[in-house]
Design a protein around this nucleic acid. Structure first.
Length: 814
RNA sequence: GCCGAAGUGGCGGAAUGGCAGACGCGGCGGUCUCAAAAACCGCUGAGCACACGCUCGUGUGGGUUCGAAUCCCACCUUCGGUACCA
């Protein structure tokens, strides 16, 4: 019955069986220890591409491995289904975004099933289902009630292409992360989440294993800096409130020779003198016109305008001019700085250009501070020109100045973060409506929980202007105020889709609960995610937001523990065969469906994992498929065409085969634990070759052969789930290979009897010795010195030293 | 500019202080075949010897060590992140 390996026959057969028997369902009442494995859910673009396979198939291997270790594994899948592409399709082609999205989901479900991943489809979530976004809205109200959501008029990142506001995290190099349009700045009323309230805690990663790379990116993004707020009086009649600056260098305050405030700073209007009014107005207008890109370019020469007003340095009473300049950002710190040109390059450049005073307040071994300095020097030896502080060493300076300021009420120590509150309102249709009603009498009122979900209207008009149809749907917008029942209007902004994905992993635990987002029992049962996998491009978006969301939920008493995902692994980016990012324009796109048709899903899965380390990504090589295909065919033939089997328990060949098998278990187990799938597969290939050699050599011991083949099938099961299921059955075992226990190695059998020891003379390899494992140094030395080649090299010289590494090497130094 | 990762055969890569190039692709030779495909076996870093061998070789230059792809210093290149953040 030596039939051939035909993936297109066995793969659909087993997938159907798995679904019928709900093999991968994760029951809530299973007593085994739980394992929550999660891979980032896709946006339903309508086509599952190789990148999705590259992200998900290895993640599936991890989940399957845990299942074989005896865990009750939950490995759910769903769709991040709100978002702009659906709406753009509606605007361009007149297709209803709902229809477009759900058709795509249907298609992608089918494509996902081809992968043969062990997803628990009973737990599927679709973020655009009212049953899901009801709870997204509910969450928003919870944040609102706990003071973590607020609306404010502020300078927003406006993407003209997407016709909506973007969060800072969605602006990349001054451009929209999605559409690449240059982002404009616009004053708008928006909703925010107070993520900054958690800035400090988000910097800590206690008790979780996240890659250093991601932690670094998040830390940089949060951008904590320590310093002080210092209050300068404004020397303008009628101005009572101080001009507060943030500085990381309060120790240089005596060198502050001018102030710079952002053009958008509220004080600009009040302090500008009559003579400077025109110049200031021009500058403010020019700044408003400039794009974020122009403004942020560090190459650009600094510009600014004098306001005509002066501030008073609280430390020495000096009157210093107040300038406005766009190198000071209204969104960071207090939007105002004290400029210390002697010790800050930017301030120095500005002072040079406008002829402002430069006063060094530090001594420096290489700088004469009694004459004009040629460049700013950020650090010095001891304070100077600083009145009572002169002579203070730099290391003590900041603390001393801050203490002085606090004593006298001139300011106080402060920490500032680069992170800003998360802007979550979007001026678009295809998202979860913000559950608020604006009433002229009662103000902004939350929609009562009992009225959730606020459902998107059907049959709406999409305008090519990009204007949200919600603003045009009169019957949807006009509602009675929940407070006074008077006429009121619905909020027409919808939520950033990152809000939907911030809690999806919670919903998977209890996806059909109509009463609440998840039950307390489900939370206790499943949280946190044990292993999360996904792309690093989400480092400062999804991966930061979801941590914030979790911490907020914890403080509301809804979840326990400080982090949503215990372990994170970031896969790399899979490239086209030419080493470039896959793209239609380059014509290097590999379509998974084609590969499955040609080679089978098992083969494609394995090839993606075999090309290199998962975290590094790299080119997908279609010609390499034949190597994987040969290996799977070999595995097939080992099962269906065994050699003649006899009992030879004590034969050296038997011992050797069993050693190969047990060594493979040891190695493969380590590699799957660490997600090193490329070397895992190469180990399995070596084992197949060992079985192959044994078969070619003649009769094989029955027990050793059975153990070898059975082990090969079990160890390969997570990687290639279909073929192994078929082979498992053909070996006469019961369904299913995927619920079997992971093989355990017998260390004694894996151990070598004989080892090869490298013999070096002066660090150069001269010969090799085959000796019993664990040979003593004296024995190895004697054997080594007896070798003709060693004798030749050592002859006539004295042995000065010898290095011995047991079972590895001996090095004789002469 | 700053932070991080990486540079190894014709190609993807393995080896994280101890035999560089595991495993695979590609290439060359062979077995089987009327032939081809498939399958299987052997060889495949460079140079010299073309046999036993020898020398060189992991981006570049230095260092530590009996011994370095691996550790340290400087530099070059590529990729990712970030960038007037006071």
């Amino acid at each position: 019955m030596a039939d051939r390996y035909e993936p297109h026959v066995i793969e659909p057969k087993w997938r159907a069986r798995w679904e019928e028997t709900r093999l991968y369902a994760a029951p809530d009442d299973d007593p085994r220890p739980k394992w929550y494995a999660l891979t980032m859910f896709p946006y339903p673009s309508g086509d599952l591409h190789t990148g999705h396979w590259y992200a998900m198939a290895p993640s599936d291997v991890g989940a399957r491995y845990r299942r074989m270790l005896g865990h009750n594994v939950m490995f759910p899948m769903g769709f991040d289904a709100f978002g702009l592409p659906a709406e753009n399709a509606a605007i361009k082609r007149g297709i209803d975004p709902r229809e477009w999205t759900y058709q795509n989901i249907d298609r992608m479900r089918g494509q996902l099933r081809l992968m043969g991943a062990s997803f628990d489809w009973d737990r599927e979530v679709v973020t655009s289902d009212p049953e899901y976004y009801k709870w997204t809205q509910w969450w928003f109200l919870q944040f609102y009630k706990h003071g973590l959501a607020y609306q404010a008029e502020s300078l927003a990142n406006w993407c003209p292409g997407c016709q909506t506001v973007l969060a800072n995290e969605q602006v990349v190099d001054g451009r929209c992360e999605r559409s690449d349009d240059v982002v404009q700045r616009k004053m708008m009323r928006q909703w925010f989440f107070k993520i900054t309230a958690y800035a400090e805690e988000l910097l800590r990663y206690d008790g979780i294993e996240w890659p250093e790379r991601i932690r670094n990116m998040q830390r940089n993004w949060i951008g904590r800096s320590e310093g002080a707020h210092l209050d300068f009086k404004v020397d303008v009649p009628g101005a009572t409130e101080p001009l507060t600056v943030f500085t990381t260098r309060p120790d240089t305050v005596f060198g502050a020779t001018f102030m710079v405030i952002a053009p958008e700073h509220p004080l600009v209007e009040r302090i500008t003198t009559g003579g400077q009014r025109a110049a200031v107005d021009d500058y403010v207008a020019a700044t408003a016109r400039a794009s974020e890109i122009d403004r942020l370019s560090t190459e650009r020469e600094k510009t600014g305008v004098f306001t005509g007003a002066y501030a008073v340095n609280p430390f020495n009473g000096a009157h210093v001019p107040i300038w406005i300049a766009d190198y000071v950002l209204v969104t960071y710190g207090t939007g105002a700085i004290m400029a210390v040109p002697a010790h800050d390059e930017r301030d120095f450049a500005f002072a040079r250009k406008y002829g402002l005073e430069v006063i060094p307040v530090y001594t420096h071994p290489n700088v004469d501070i009694t004459t004009p300095i040629a460049a700013a020097f950020p650090h010095g030896t001891a304070m100077a020109n600083s009145g009572p502080f002169d002579g203070t060493p730099e290391a003590e300076a900041v603390a001393k100045v801050v203490a002085y300021a606090e004593e006298r009420g001139l300011g106080k120590g402060a920490v500032t973060y680069r992170l800003r509150d998360w802007s979550v309102s979007r001026q678009r249709f295809w998202g979860a409506p913000l559950p608020f009603i604006h009433c002229a009498k009662c103000g902004t009122q939350p929609v009562p929980d009992s009225d959730l979900p606020v459902v998107l209207p059907e049959k709406v008009q999409f305008m090519p202007t990009g204007q949200s149809p919600l603003t045009l749907s009169e019957e949807w917008v006009n509602v009675p105020c929940p407070n006074c029942s008077g006429p009121a209007r619905r909020e027409t902004d919808t939520l950033d889709t990152f809000m939907c994905s911030s809690w999806y992993q919670m919903r998977y635990a209890d996806p059909h609960n109509p009463e609440r987002p998840f039950s307390a029992e489900a939370a206790r049962k499943w949280f946190p995610v044990d292993q999360y996998t996904g792309g690093a491009e989400h480092a400062v978006m999804h991966l930061l937001y979801t941590r914030f969301f979790w911490k907020a939920a914890r403080d509301m008493g809804l979840v326990e523990g400080d982090e949503p995902m215990a372990r994170l692994f970031n896969q790399g980016v899979v490239l086209g065969p030419d080493g470039n990012r896959m793209s239609k324009s380059r014509g290097n796109v590999v379509a998974p469906d084609d590969q499955v048709e040609k080679w089978g899903a098992d083969c494609f899965r394995c090839q993606l994992m075999f090309v290199g380390p998962w975290d590094q990504g790299g080119p997908y090589n279609p010609t390499g498929m034949s190597g994987i295909s040969r290996w799977l065919n070999r595995l097939w033939s080992l099962v269906v065409e065994p050699p003649s089997l006899i009992d030879l328990p004590d034969a050296p060949a038997t011992r050797e085969l069993r050693r190969a098998t047990h060594k493979t278990i040891v190695a493969v187990t380590e590699e799957v634990e660490e997600f090193r799938f490329n070397t895992m597969i190469s180990r399995l290939m070596e084992h197949s070759s060992a079985l192959q050699r044994a078969r070619e050599a003649g009769s094989v011991d029955r027990a050793a052969w059975d153990e070898g083949v059975r082990t090969a099938v079990l160890l390969t099961a997570p990687l290639a789930p279909h073929i192994t299921e078929e082979l498992w059955e053909r070996l006469g075992n019961g369904y299913s290979v995927h619920t079997q226990a992971w093989p355990v190695a017998d260390r004694a059998l894996a151990h070598d009897d004989e080892v090869e020891i490298v013999v070096q003379v002066n660090g150069k390899v001269r010969d090799r010795l085959s000796l019993p494992a664990g040979s003593s140094e004296a024995a190895v030395r004697a054997a080594a010195l007896a070798l003709p080649r060693v004798q030749q090299a050592v002859e006539g010289r004295t042995v000065r030293k010898q290095i011995f590494v047991p079972d590895r090497l001996i090095n004789i130094v002469v």
